[in-house]
Amino acid sequence: MFHPLLVREVERLTDDSVAVTLTVPPELYDTFRHTPGQHLALRRMVAGEEIRRTYSICAPAVPAGAAPVLRVGIRAVDGGEFSTYAVKELAAGDTVEVMPPMGRFRLAPRPGYFAAVVGGSGITPVLSMATTLLEREPAARFCLIRSDRTVASTMFLDEVADLKDRFPDRFQLVTALSREEQQSGLPSGRLDRDRLTALLPALLPVAEIDGWFLCGPLGLVTAAEEALRGLGADRSRIHQEIFHVADGPAAGSAASRVAAPAHAALTATLDGRSGTWPVEKGESLLETVLRSRSDAPYACKGGVCGTCRAFLVSGEVRMDRNFALEPEETEAGYVLACQSHPATPEVELDFDR
């Protein structure tokens, strides 16, 4: 369910990015409390067409009873209607429609040693994670390895510098710039698999880290995951969120290789109500549900945000691609409705689990 929230502030971070702070009315405090790492789905109408996008919350989580702080980082992307609008036009006093926080890329404060590898705007959810963790848990440490093009393009420079000043013994920062030399720190260049394989063990005990959080472009996240697995990191401790994946099915996806049944029906449960509908040729299961239930959850429709996650009760499906669900979730029976197509004549999904 979307709620209209007032824009309190739009702060310029770089030439192509802003931080947007939203005001939450008291009656919605509980609705909009977030766990560090979660995101918001924002909606606006353009020429009669609904546009939804998800943006991660960069503000730390607040204790129960306090007013939640909703601050999201938005970077303009080529052809991005919502991001361009947010960076160029959105202003304090405007109203934005917002869904409650969601997402499973999160870190609840607890003792331990945690680390993140991020690229570009991938710093946004990790900033919330690191700040909340260090503020609330004295027995926790956090190492942030971030990659950006140049200093001028780096989001949340001041906030990260503040963490270094406040927690010098528990917060470690390593910065790599791909298009600019630094006076100190790593030489310029991309953080690819080979470079990360050499760098990570020199910084911290890879296999002993209690949680790895990878966020940013697909190439960086994939390289970091491969490096970590090669260095002995436990798969269950590696968490990832992809930003900015190109459109189109993943190469070699099952859905592109296997034909769907000639006729299929979908039964779906949403908010306690069930219905059954025929699946039209070529459409995803999310599109099937949306024809009759406009309240079906979704945001990116690209297999990235995970908003449309559903439990596969019966039948089989094929997903075009999956950049949101972790292996444990797919093994447990969860699928992305926006990327799923029927592989059997009858399929049943449950969005409420």
Rank of each mutant, 00 (worst) to 15 (best):
S56M: 03
C58H: 08
C58N: 10
C58Q: 12
A59E: 01
P60W: 10
A61F: 00
A61S: 10
V62P: 10
A64T: 10
G65A: 08
A66T: 09
A66F: 05
A66Q: 08
A66V: 09
P68R: 03
P68E: 06
P68D: 03
V69D: 05
V69N: 08
V69A: 07
L70M: 07
L70E: 12
L70K: 02
L70V: 03
R71P: 02
R71M: 10
V72L: 07
I74F: 05
I74T: 01
A76N: 08
A76S: 14
V77I: 11
D78N: 12
G79P: 08
G80F: 02
E81V: 13
F82P: 14
S83G: 10
S83E: 10
T84P: 00
Y85A: 06
Y85F: 13
A86Q: 12
A86E: 01
V87F: 09
V87D: 12
E89T: 06
E89W: 04
L90W: 01
L90S: 13
A92G: 12
A92W: 08
A92P: 01
G93A: 01
D94N: 08
T95M: 09
T95E: 11
V96R: 05
V96W: 02
V96E: 03
E97T: 08
V98M: 01
M99A: 13
P100A: 10
P100Y: 03
P101R: 05
G103N: 07
R104F: 11
R106D: 12
L107M: 07
L107N: 10
A108C: 05
P109M: 00
Y113H: 12
Y113F: 14
F114W: 05
F114M: 02
A116I: 11
A116Q: 06
V118P: 12
V118K: 13
G119L: 12
G120E: 02
G120S: 10
G122N: 11
I123W: 07
T124S: 15
P125Q: 02
V126D: 06
L127S: 01
L127W: 04
M129Q: 06
M129L: 02
A130P: 00
T131Y: 05
T132P: 03
L133M: 10
L134Q: 02
E135A: 09
R136F: 00
R136M: 04
A139N: 15
A139K: 15
R141S: 14
F142K: 00
C143Y: 11
L144E: 04
I145C: 07
I145Q: 06
D148Y: 13
D148N: 13
R149V: 05
V151C: 11
V151P: 13
V151K: 14
S153D: 11
S153A: 09
S153R: 08
T154H: 08
F156Q: 06
F156H: 14
V160D: 06
V160K: 08
A161G: 13
A161F: 15
A161R: 13
L163Q: 03
K164H: 13
R166L: 05
R166N: 06
F167S: 06
F167W: 05
P168M: 00
P168I: 04
R170A: 09
F171C: 05
F171N: 09
Q172K: 14
A176V: 04
A176K: 07
L177V: 02
S178N: 12
R179D: 15
E180L: 02
E180Q: 15
E181P: 02
Q182M: 09
Q182C: 07
Q183N: 09
Q183Y: 15
Q183L: 12
